Simulated scan of single mutants.
Amino acid sequence: MSSGAVFFDDDDRVLLVDPTYKKYWNLPGGGVDAGETPRAACVREVREELGLDVSIGPLLVVAWTADGPDGKLFFVFDGGVLPPEQRAAIVLDPGELAEYAFLPPERARWRLSEPQWALMVEVLAARADGVTRYVELGQV
Rank of each mutant, 00 (worst) to 15 (best):
M1W: 10
S3M: 10
S3R: 01
G4Y: 04
V6G: 03
V6S: 03
F7L: 02
D9C: 04
D10R: 14
D11N: 11
D12P: 03
R13N: 15
V14S: 02
V14I: 14
L15A: 07
L16M: 07
V17S: 04
V17C: 12
P19S: 09
Y21H: 14
K22R: 14
K23R: 15
Y24F: 12
W25N: 00
W25I: 00
L27W: 03
L27V: 06
P28R: 06
G31E: 12
G31S: 14
V32K: 04
V32Q: 00
V32R: 00
D33T: 12
D33L: 15
D33I: 05
D33Q: 14
A34K: 04
A34F: 08
A34P: 13
A34N: 08
G35C: 07
G35Y: 10
E36M: 09
E36G: 07
T37F: 12
P38I: 03
A40P: 01
A41C: 08
C42Q: 07
V43F: 00
R44D: 06
E45T: 09
E45R: 15
E45L: 10
V46M: 03
R47V: 06
L50R: 06
L50C: 04
G51A: 13
L52P: 07
L52H: 08
L52C: 06
V54D: 08
V54I: 11
P58G: 15
L59I: 09
L60T: 09
L60P: 03
V61Y: 00
V61R: 01
A63P: 01
W64S: 13
T65Q: 04
D67W: 07
D67A: 11
D67Y: 09
G68F: 00
G71Q: 11
G71R: 05
K72H: 15
F74M: 05
F75M: 10
F75I: 08
V76S: 05
F77M: 12
D78H: 07
D78T: 13
D78R: 06
G79N: 06
G80C: 10
L82I: 05
P83R: 10
Q86V: 02
Q86H: 12
R87H: 12
R87A: 02
A89Y: 06
L92I: 15
D93K: 10
P94K: 11
P94S: 06
E96C: 12
E96G: 11
L97S: 00
A98M: 14
A98V: 10
A98G: 15
Y100F: 12
Y100G: 02
Y100H: 10
L103H: 01
L103R: 06
L103N: 02
P104G: 11
P105I: 08
E106S: 07
R107L: 09
R109P: 01
W110L: 07
R111C: 10
L112C: 03
E114F: 11
Q116F: 00
L119R: 01
L119P: 03
L119F: 07
M120G: 01
V121H: 03
V121Q: 11
V121D: 05
L124P: 02
A125E: 11
A125R: 08
R127K: 15
A128M: 02
A128W: 12
D129E: 12
G130V: 08
V131Q: 13
T132C: 15
Y134P: 04
Y134H: 09
L137R: 08
G138P: 06
Q139A: 13
